[in-house]
Design a protein around this nucleic acid. Structure first.
Lengths: 212, 212
DNA sequence: GCCTATATGTCATCGTAGTTGACAGAAGAT
DNA sequence: ATCTTCTGTCAACTACGATGACATATAGGC
């Protein structure tokens, strides 16, 4: 592997700014609900002016979007690790990944406060009614994970599977059902056959067309 | 453990700037010798102007100082880990720590190019003839490690031991002697008795006085 | 209902970190 | 001796972030 190229300072600093703000919000969220947190609080906690916060993320809603998106990304990293540990057995990989996600979501203080608070609107809406960006982003990322693990899979099939899983995951995170082991296993039972077929098809059956 | 407080953005960005520059220098050093690297090269590699580099570290020499100091710190982190693994057996801890240092130094591409190059002057001088800051810094850090591991040790004794070890380490890094296992063992043999005594003394014999 | 917080979003102004181009002096190469 | 290249320093410019003020909206107290 070649020497990985250095991130120029300016770019790294910009990333740092965003992350500092997002992290600050996460900290605050572990104490109070989203509704109780002002933009001022976040900016101050990050050691930055309110104006800078607005310049970086246009509005409170956009900030919430970005925040949720990053949290989702965090989860997907855990999922990716789980998948990589079962590259030889796709069904187990699926089960493991889903399980990892569900247990992580169940334990994550952020998700818990998000769901227990009387604020079913606001942040929760960002992964449901207004959840298009999140679903799209997570789907893209997850299908990339799938394709990188099993390169013979048809991209369209990967995308389909990914979106289905993302939507199921959000649903189960929002409304858990029984012990997590059960639901993960159920999903595997449900989707196992599809996976089997997709892996043996070798790029011939489904036309590689993005659907709108 | 309490929620660890967030580093304000401004401070983090400043650290980032320094680290980006120092890292850039490290990268360059793995290809060419210190003498072949210009301040321009470093600034450019870090994605920053030459002026900023000068504003951050006054001069080429000061930059070299800071660079070496940070490398030393890196080594001390490895040493600290080794020490923590043998808190119950000081002699073994000493041996392990010294061994870790020597093997790390032997493998580190930076140290190797530093010593093999025809540039015995320049960077090398910073840990020998002009090495006062490095020795002082490393001694302070190492004695802190010792004190944190064995709190009954007299601070003055810790400092004495630390400085002795630092100087020995630098010497052996600059001029290795035989297989590393040997020298680490030798050091233990040499200093074991001192350590035994220091640990049983319980703060009574040596006056806690800093010597000039 | 009205009135007063308080929060959001936007503005103009200011300070400062980092950029750019230029320069004198030192050191090396030809 | 001259030409080049690097160091170290300067002043001028730019852009990011800080500050304080403002209009608007939303919530709570009366």
């Amino acid at each position: 592997m070649a020497t990985l190229e250095r991130t120029p300072y300016a770019e790294a600093a910009h990333e740092l700014l965003r992350n500092t703000l997002l992290d600050a919000a996460r900290d605050e969220l572990e104490r109070r609900g989203w509704a109780q947190i002002t933009m001022s609080d976040i900016a101050t906690a990050a050691g930055v002016s309110r104006q800078t916060l607005y310049k970086e993320f246009g509005s409170r809603d956009e900030f919430a979007q970005a925040f949720v998106m990053r949290e989702v990304d965090r989860f997907l990293e855990a999922v990716e690790v789980a998948v990589r540990e079962h590259l030889n057995d796709p069904a187990t990989a699926l089960s493991a990944a889903f399980n990892v996600f569900l247990t992580a979501a169940a334990e994550d203080p952020l998700v818990r406060t998000l769901l227990t608070g009387d604020e079913a609107y606001s942040l929760l809406a960002l992964v449901t009614t207004q959840g298009e960006p999140v679903v799209a982003g997570a789907t893209k990322r997850l299908s990339a994970i799938i394709l990188s693990g099993w390169s013979t899979v048809n991209p369209a099939d990967a995308r389909l599977l990914a979106e289905c899983l993302v939507r199921l995951a959000i649903s189960y995170a929002a409304l858990p059902a029984g012990p997590t082991g059960m639901t993960a296993a159920s999903v595997t039972t449900l989707l196992g056959p599809f996976i089997e077929r997709v892996l043996t098809e070798e790029l011939e059956s489904v036309p590689t067309r993005d659907y709108p």
